[in-house]
């Protein structure tokens, strides 16, 4: 299970330059902070006028913290997760991951940053069904240029830790929903990211399987000190995380420790 421990030497060499280019000397970038969101706003132009999806959001997440983002549909929680994951650029404000101002980077460097610093878990798993579980898990490693043997080794160790090593040669389409989400979790961890972003990870699963997947995320956080930010509709799951941030109308309505 050692592979699931947060490895501080996990950042790739390519990040060294990136960090020196964009690291800010602020109190939000202390060694204990994994994520800092500062004055984040997102305004969309639509036919009916401007739509404020996020309005001056501010919060920080400590390393090893398991944070849930909750809120009603259309509140802006998924938009916030997309901003934290650098899938979209904000209208204003900054997001720091491990002290790196991610939107100060070029698109290409943002892609490298997503590969090295962020692990994504999607509601509908988003696995490549035509290829094997092993290849899905090692895909972020392949993208980072990790040597094949190392990528295979890491992927297999994570699959073993998550109890699905025997499925390595199968195609995801032949697995149950819970097993597919475990594959997605394994993929999110293979590059040893600074934070794991989970968008409704139990949304497509039945309650029992959903609970199993959530327990796995909790274990990753508690036992292996992984920083996890999870968007969920489920208030019970949210209460089981370290901290819940309620988003409403694009603003942080409440930020409470559980």
């Amino acid at each position: 299970m050692g592979v699931l421990n947060k490895d501080k030497s996990g950042l790739k060499g390519s990040f060294t330059t990136m960090v020196s280019e964009s690291r800010q000397t602020t109190d939000t970038n202390s060694n204990s902070t994994a994520l800092a969101v500062k004055n984040l706003s997102k305004i969309y132009d639509s036919v009916s006028g401007k739509v404020v999806a996020l309005d001056n959001i501010n919060f920080t997440v400590k390393k090893g913290e398991f944070v849930s983002i909750v809120g009603p549909s259309g509140s802006g929680k998924s938009t916030l997760l997309n901003m934290i994951g650098a899938l979209d650029r904000p209208t204003s404000g900054q997001v720091y991951i491990n002290g790196i101002d991610i939107f100060a980077l070029s698109d290409s460097k943002i892609a490298t940053m997503r590969n090295g610093l962020i692990g994504f878990i999607f509601q509908s798993f988003n696995l490549i069904n035509r290829t094997t579980v092993l290849k899905n898990v090692k895909l972020p490693g392949m993208i980072s240029g990790m040597p094949v043997s190392e990528a295979n080794n890491r992927a297999m160790k994570i699959l073993e830790a998550l109890g699905i090593a025997d499925k390595a040669t199968q195609k995801p389409v032949n697995l149950s929903g819970g097993q597919q989400q475990r594959v997605a979790i394994a993929r999110s961890l293979v590059n040893n990211p600074a934070i794991v972003l989970a968008d409704e990870p139990t949304g497509n699963l039945d309650s029992k399987t959903g609970d199993d997947v959530f327990d796995m995320l909790k274990t990753l956080s508690r036992k292996f000190k992984r920083t996890i930010i999870m968007v969920t509709h489920n208030p019970e799951l949210a209460e089981s995380t370290d901290r819940s941030i309620l988003i409403k109308d694009g603003k942080v309505e409440r930020d409470v420790a559980n």
Binding site: A111, F122, P140
Partner: peptide, 16 residues
């Protein structure tokens, strides 16, 4: 298209 989106989300460059 979703596969391309996933690959880009996990860090694939345009060139990849």
């Amino acid at each position: 298209i979703r596969e391309i989106g996933t690959m880009k989300a996990i860090g694939a460059q345009n060139g990849d």
